[in-house]
Each structure stands twice: as structure tokens, then as C-alpha cells.
Simulated scan of single mutants.
Amino acid sequence: MKDCIFDNFQNSVDESLLRHRSILDIITKLQESEARVNRAVIKSITNCGCIKVEAKKQSTPDNIDDLDLDTLSASLDTHMQGNLCESCRDVLERELGNNLFYTTSLCNLLDLNLYDILLKEYDKINTLGKYNMR
């Protein structure tokens, strides 16, 4: 069932992409959409203020060799405080959707299946688990 959703989405993207069929157009639109996602996050911080960033050097516990990965992961900071307001959430969802559209367009042009890519990444994450270290 889930693969049908991905396939349907990928087919819909392929059918709706009319103006930007060139690989150059798609890559530049994908890059632009990535910048717009970044900009929406920054605007949530600088204009709205619903989220706040307090960045500093990540500190690791002194006994790092004795810690398991769950404990180590819990000790690392996201540098973010707060939650997105509804308005910022809507903007980010729209921008991430556009980014997904152009990612899917690139998959279509290169004859790649988005669902297969997702499954391979999912399998890699599950196989390596926390040892994936991204």
C-alpha cells in the first residue's frame, strides 16, 4: 500500500512538471527549494521567534568510552529551543513539499524510483542503527 502512495506521488510529479523538464532546470530548482527551506527555518527564528537557537560547542561526557550510544546521543544538544508556531509550520511544510517535488522530479528524470531509494536508506539505517553515525 505504501509503495502505491510513493508511486502515485512520483507519477503525479512527472505528469505535472511541464516547464522545467531539463536536468539543469530541475537541479537549480531543487537547490533553490533547499535554500527556501533554510530561509523558512531562519525566519522562524529571526522574524517570528517561535524557535530559538543557542549554539555552543558540543560537550561530551568525560567518561565517553564507558557510555553506550543511547546515553551519548542524549547528551548532545540540538541547539534549538521552542516549537514552531502554526504559521511557521505551514510555511516549512510548503517549502519541504516543494523540495520533495523537485527531488522526485530529479528521480523521474534519472529513472530512479523514490520508494526504492527510501527502502534502501531505511534498510541501511536499520542495519547499522546508531552506528550509522550521521
Rank of each mutant, 00 (worst) to 15 (best):
F6V: 07
F6H: 11
F9E: 07
Q10K: 03
V13Y: 03
E15D: 09
S16M: 10
L17D: 03
H20C: 15
R21G: 03
D25G: 13
K29G: 01
K29Q: 10
A40I: 03
I42G: 02
I42L: 12
V53Q: 11
E54K: 08
K57E: 12
N63E: 07
I64L: 13
D65Q: 07
L67N: 04
L67E: 06
L72G: 09
S73G: 02
L76D: 07
D77M: 00
H79R: 08
M80V: 15
M80N: 07
G82T: 06
L84K: 03
C85Y: 08
S87V: 15
S87D: 15
E93A: 06
E93P: 00
R94Q: 13
E95L: 00
L96W: 08
G97V: 00
N99C: 06
Y102N: 03
Y102F: 15
T103G: 01
T103L: 14
T104R: 02
N108A: 11
L109S: 13
D111T: 09
L112D: 05
L112G: 02
L112M: 14
N113W: 02
N113C: 07
Y115P: 04
Y122P: 01
K124L: 10
T127C: 00
T127Y: 05
Y131I: 01
M133K: 13
M133N: 10
